[in-house]
Design a protein around this nucleic acid. Structure first.
Lengths: 252, 252
DNA sequence: CTTGACCCTGACGCAACGGTAGGCGGCAGC
DNA sequence: GCTGCCGCCTACCGTTGCGTCAGGGTCAAG
């Protein structure tokens, strides 16, 4: 089957200009032309375009894509295999970034100042300015972004203060429960642990039970978070940790 | 504390030139200068740089980053919240791409020709050319890529044929077991299911039991894969599916 | 046979830096 | 106090991967 530029562009999710460009630089030249000079792409061209798109998404420069695609010693499956590896690597990378953001959020909730080293840890020992850049050409106007913007836009200083207030209120009530001598895995402590989770969910992000126990462990493992809670009441970090775990187990 | 460009660059994992650029366009101007004209960054500047880096990694153009960072109605936590959302969105996106690659791999293993629509499904209904591009500036020379390249480089047409041969051999033996009347959750069928998993692992990617059962389900859910197996022996798709599931359960 | 959608080839423009040249600043060691 | 050497400064040109006209042919439908 023969395809015109426009149809290929639409199917592959690129612009016609992009295909022109790939043709210009010889990365993807259509296998033929119509009598009138129209580009005609066949199935093999589309297969090649698929590979190009994946490598592009993975951040490879066009020139390098050309050399790896034109390597005669590489069979088709090798590309898929490599792309699979690179993709999973990228996912791990993004998950690290998510963890770093969650860390920064908790620090922000507790007014803990991060050192610059901590701030850039996730960048520093990995790579400088990584992938990105192009996403925005579409993300900027995309629904996903708009929705995210809408959900987040309304958050001003005022809300921030309310957040702090709710947080403080929760802290007071939690200390009361601790002082009452109730067990950390008892119903009242667990209820407050659940409330803590929902507080994070409301103000920051969907905090699943899994993430929540992750945070709990961070509270006892990282001295700064421990210090934050210990300053409110000695033993609070461990007590909260236990309450969160108990709550997560009982809800699961 | 006051930082020089060089130290900031190193900590944040960017080049000095980049910081100069951010200064030029007013995205991140150091809060002060030394008597000699040296840029001096303070902690607030670094905090801002952290946000910039995340938004950049998420693909936002610098100009837009400037507007969202300078929005006075947005509190600091809102940025983290938004970045968290965008990051998790990106992870989902990459996971879709991984699934698409795994799909393409299986199709390739079985010599199933994909239609262009299928080829670009993962791009088409999402966004055109997405993020990427910059990663490579470092990925290209990075260890991660080099290693991936090394692992994959040796795969030539010859290996490809060996792969096919192994696959065919496995198919023959599997059919024998089926014809022998052995149950799909019996030891011999399970052993061949396990062999199937390792075959995928050796030639393509680390195929966990979870992924493997995912493939198994695909074999019965997607008619083309079903057709592939049914052509070898009627009932083979379902039989293989059961054997894979039984194997996964027994090994877990 | 006209009209609107689609195609062509230039050619210029732009973002986000990379790289380098040419020159000053700071401080360690002699 | 002088000499290196490293780090910083500004200025300017180069590059990638397209976007965006401009000016003009093509093709299927009505």
């Amino acid at each position: 089957m023969a395809w015109t530029v426009g149809r290929v562009a639409k199917a592959a999710g690129v612009t016609v200009r992009t295909l022109h460009h790939y043709d210009e630089i010889g990365l993807l030249s259509p296998s033929g032309r119509s009598p009138a000079g129209y580009r005609r792409y066949d199935d093999a061209d589309l297969e090649r375009l698929q590979l190009i798109r994946y490598y592009r998404e993975l951040g490879f420069p066009l020139e390098e894509i050309a050399t790896i695609l034109d390597d005669p010693d590489t069979d088709p499956a090798a590309h898929l295999r490599r792309q699979h590896e690179l993709l999973t690597g990228r996912i791990t990378r993004l998950q690290e970034m998510v963890a770093a953001i969650e860390f920064a959020m908790e620090a922000s909730r507790m007014d803990i100042r991060l050192t610059p080293e901590e701030r850039f840890e996730v960048f520093g020992d990995f790579d400088p300015d990584a992938h990105a850049e192009e996403a925005q050409r579409r993300w900027g106007g995309s629904e996903a972004y708009r929705e995210s913007a809408r959900r987040v836009a309304g958050y001003g200083k005022e809300d921030w203060l309310r957040n702090k207030a709710e947080n403080a209120d929760w802290g007071r009530r939690f200390v009361e429960v601790m002082d009452s001598g109730a067990p950390a895995d008892g119903p009242t402590a667990m209820a407050l642990a659940e409330e803590h989770r929902q507080l994070v969910s409301r103000w920051f992000y969907e905090c699943t039970y899994e993430i929540h126990t992750g945070l709990a462990d961070m509270y006892v493992a990282d001295e700064r978070f421990t210090a934050y809670y210990e300053a409110i009441r000695p033993g609070m970090a461990a007590y909260l940790n236990e309450a969160i775990h108990a709550n997560a187990i009982s809800r699961a």
